[in-house]
Each structure stands twice: as C-alpha cells, then as structure tokens.
C-alpha cells in the first residue's frame, strides 16, 4: 500500500518507518500494556507501587523467571520443554536427600547443591538426547519425562520432607544483598547473560535459524543437533537453579514442588512475543512477560480480587495480548 513517491526526503521516510516498526514490535506493545496495567493497578491499591512490595514480588517470580529464560531458547527453535517443573521437583528432592544428616548420604551442603545442579543438567541432557538422537518430538519426550522425573522425585523422597537447613543456606532464598533480595541478583545475571547470548552471538543467531528453517540451518553448516542438546541441557540446569533457590526460600523439600511451573513459564514466554512455532522472540520480551504476570497477580490481589478471579484475568490477558499482537502485525505487514 505504501507506494508513496520516492522523490521526497528518502532518509526521513526511512527514519519514520523505522520508528514505526520499533513501536510495532511485540516487546514495545507489551511494555505499553504493562505500563498501563501498572498505572491501573496502582489506582487499585496504594500499597502496590512501593519499593518493598515490588522487591518482595521479585522473590516470588525468580523461579519462573529463570525457567522462562531457558524456555525462550527452546521455543525459538520450535521446541517445548514440559518437564521443567518435574526437574525442579526432582532436583529439590535430590538436594534434600543428599544433604539430610539423618539420611544415607549426609553430604556437606555445598556438595549436595552441586549434585542437585548436576542432576538437573543431566535430566535436561537426557531430554536433549532423546529429542535429537532418537528423533522423538519435544512435546512427547518432555511429556514422558514430566511423568518420569516427577515419579523419580516421589519415589526417591518416599514422601518424606527434608528440613532444618543451616541458617546460611537461607541467604539465597530469604536474604538480601545491597537491599535487594539475593535471588533477584541471580535472576538479573542470567537475564543479561541469556539476552547477550541470544542477540549478540553466532550461537544466538543459529537458534533463530533452526527455528525458522531447521533443514536450511543444517545445510548452512549449523550443528543443529549439538545446539539443540545444549539448550535442553541448559533448561535442565536452570530448573535445578530454580530448585536450589526454591528450597532456600521455603526451607523444605517436597516432591510436589514446581508442579505446573511449565505452564507458567510457557505463558510468560508466549506473552513476551516468542512465537510458539519458532523462529522469533526475545529475552527482553520474556522478561516483560513474567514481570507482567507477577504484577497482575500481585496488583489484583492487593485491589481485592481473589486468587480464582486473578487466574481468569491472566488467562484472558494471555489470549488478548497475542490477539492484539497478531492483529497489529498483520496490519503492518499488509500496510
């Protein structure tokens, strides 16, 4: 439609179209929606927009945030990982069982944490192997390991909780560093790290290439299999990190920890503009996605909406956000 005359100032035209395309990016649209939501919620309760409250919400979103970051990579390649919640549960149990002074292992806490991270990484690696080397679709693989890992967590724990960790262990989940909850620093580091990797490295570009056209990527020399195994392994590692932080935050281990986490993480990623079909998306979008969901949960609760009402709102926002985005993208695509 924009068959305008090219005689006038060309560079100015380019500039304005660039601004327009920037404004039409999903991240920006989402950011605007978020700001509107924050303004709206701040009217609902004067306790919402306070530093204390917002920092405290940071504690609650860290686990979902970490998992959503690695999920972004996976979804960009056109895959999915449904097993993250179960990996979290398994890792939490492993951490407890390995440390438990009255148990069979009674290892030092540091060693137990390392084993916890290793088990998570291994669990993710197994996902990757099955998907890449055996060619089983990600949805089915991780559906199977969702059951398997949760089953292992239940079996290993034998329904016993491990409690009574030393005080210094709680620093990560309940402590503060420079006035900010400790785990938020961890989340921040991983946010920057993943954002840089995805947008500034060859690896990141390869991830998009795999999502856009796997066969094409392979022909142009991208080690598709190896990269895919790497991101699923990373996803397992992130779930283990989340498990460590979770155990430190709630000071106990239970085999049902993290159930349903996968859906929250996927919702955050999708809300953040990553296409479930692969090929597009960004870490910034995901970050805005999980922050928006947490703020909605918190802000609505503070305005007096009950939990079940909040769930309804979040489901609606998810569908509407994608709908609006689709609409705008199509308009601008045609225009």
């Amino acid at each position: 439609m924009t068959t305008t005359t090219h005689t006038t100032d060309d560079s100015q035209e380019q500039m304005s179209s660039r601004i327009r395309s920037f404004l039409l990016r999903q991240e920006v649209i989402l950011l605007i929606i978020s700001l509107l939501a924050v303004m709206f919620l701040a009217f609902g309760s004067d306790r919402f927009l306070t530093t204390d409250n917002l920092l405290n919400q940071g504690r609650l979103l860290t686990e979902i945030g970490l998992v959503a970051l690695s999920m972004t990579f996976i979804i960009i390649t056109g895959g999915i990982d449904l097993s993250v919640g179960s990996i979290l549960g398994l890792c939490a149990i492993i951490l407890g069982v390995m440390w438990d002074p009255n148990g069979a292992f009674a290892l030092p806490l540091e060693v137990a944490v390392v084993i916890c991270l290793l088990v998570g990484t291994l669990a993710g690696f197994v996902n990757g192997l099955i998907i890449v080397r055996l060619g089983v679709p990600p949805l089915i693989t991780t559906l199977a390991t969702l059951a398997l890992y949760r089953g292992l967590a239940e079996g290993i724990s034998q329904a016993r909780s491990v409690r009574g960790y030393p005080e210094e262990f709680y620093v990560l989940g309940q402590g503060e560093f420079l006035g900010v909850p400790t785990q938020l620093w961890v989340l921040l580091i991983f946010c920057i790290l993943t954002a840089v990797i995805l947008s500034r490295t060859i690896f990141g570009r390869a991830i998009y290439a795999i999502g856009n056209n796997e066969l094409g990527a392979r022909f142009s020399g991208v080690p598709v299999g190896r990269y895919k195994i790497m991101i699923y392994t990373f996803s397992g590692f992130m779930a283990a990190m989340a498990a460590w932080i979770f155990v430190s935050r709630v000071s106990t281990t239970r085999s049902d920890m993290g159930s349903g986490l996968e859906l929250d993480a996927i919702a955050a990623v999708v809300l953040g503009g990553t296409s479930i079909f692969g090929g597009s998306g960004s870490i910034i979008g995901t970050i805005i996605g999980f922050i928006l969901i947490q703020l909605l949960k918190n802000g609505l609760a503070l305005s007096g909406v009950t939990t079940d009402g909040t769930i309804v709102v979040i489901g609606t926002v998810l569908i509407l956000a994608i709908l609006i985005n689709n609409f705008i993208q199509r308009r601008s695509g045609n225009g």
Binding site: I266, V270, I319
Partner: peptide
C-alpha cells in the same frame, strides 16, 4: 475459530482457556 481464523496457536488459546475455566468455575 481463534486457531483457524485469528491465527493464535492452539497451545496459547487453550493455555489461556485453561486458566479462565479453572478460575471461573471456582468463582
């Protein structure tokens, strides 16, 4: 309709619907 004509991926539509139905039922 949302999947075929509005082009929202089915996993997103049903993920949203899952929340809406679950919360709505309790409400």
């Amino acid at each position: 309709f949302m999947v075929a004509y509005l082009r929202i991926p089915s996993i997103v539509v049903t993920l949203g619907l899952l929340s809406i139905l679950k919360g709505g039922l309790i409400t």
